[in-house]
Measured scan of single mutants.
Amino acid sequence: TGYYDVLGVKPDASDNELKKAYRKMALKFHPDKNPDGAEQFKQISQAYEVLSDEKKRQIYDQ
């Protein structure tokens, strides 16, 4: 599964769309709200870390 799929956004998503999707998913799977969501929360955080950084995103998109 790709990072875009993890966040539920298209590859041409804007920074604002990425942030909005990340916040929505992070709230849904945060371990405090969803004890079984810890692994998914890590994936969401990693996806956002890469896609929100312009240089990392360019490398990922290659």
Rank of each mutant, 00 (worst) to 15 (best):
Y4H: 03
I44R: 02
Q62P: 04
A38D: 07
K33C: 14
K56I: 04
D36M: 09
K33R: 13
Y4V: 02
N34S: 08
E49T: 09
K33G: 07
K19H: 09
K55M: 10
Q40H: 12
D15L: 15
E49H: 12
L18I: 15
A21E: 00
K33M: 12
G37E: 09
A47P: 01
K33P: 01
V6T: 06
D36P: 02
K56G: 05
K10T: 09
Y60W: 03
G2A: 11
R23N: 11
N16I: 14
D53K: 09
L51R: 01
Q43T: 08
Q43N: 08
V50H: 06
H30N: 09
R57K: 04
K24C: 14
F41T: 01
N16D: 15
Y48H: 02
G8D: 05
E17T: 06
A38N: 07
E17L: 03
A21F: 01
K56V: 04
V6R: 06
H30W: 06
V9Y: 01
K28H: 05
D5W: 11
K42S: 11
F41H: 02
K24P: 00
R57T: 02
Y22M: 06
K20E: 15
M25Y: 05
A21R: 01
K56Q: 10
F41R: 03
Y60R: 02
L7P: 01
S14Q: 03
G8M: 06
N16L: 15
D53L: 05
G2I: 10
I59V: 13
K56Y: 05
M25P: 01
A26C: 15
G2P: 08
Q43S: 08
A13P: 00
S52G: 08
S45H: 12
K19P: 00
K28F: 08
F41V: 01
L7V: 01
V9D: 01
D36Q: 12
S45I: 14
E39H: 07
F41A: 01
G2S: 15
N16A: 15
F29P: 00
G37M: 11
F29M: 04
G2E: 09
Q62S: 10
K20I: 15
K56H: 04
P31V: 06
A13E: 01
Y60F: 03
K56F: 07
Y4R: 02
F29T: 03
R23I: 14
V6Y: 03
D36V: 07
D61E: 04
F29N: 03
N34G: 06
Y48G: 03
A21P: 00
A13Q: 01
K55L: 08
G8V: 02
Q40D: 07
I59E: 14
K20H: 10
K28I: 11
P11W: 11
A47I: 06
A47D: 02
K28L: 14
K55F: 11
D36H: 11
A13S: 04
D36T: 09
A38W: 13
K56W: 06
S45V: 15
E17C: 09
T1N: 11
I44P: 01
G2T: 15
A21K: 02
P35E: 05
K10C: 15
Q40A: 10
A38Q: 10
R23D: 14
V9H: 00
D61H: 05
A47N: 00
Q62V: 07
K24R: 13
D15M: 15
Y48C: 05
K19D: 07
G37C: 14
L51A: 01
D15P: 15
Q46K: 13
Y4P: 03
Y60A: 04
L18H: 02
R23F: 12
V50C: 08
L51D: 00
K24N: 12
A13T: 04
A47Y: 02
N34E: 03
Q43W: 12
V6D: 03
L51C: 04
K55A: 11
G37H: 14
K42T: 07
K42R: 13
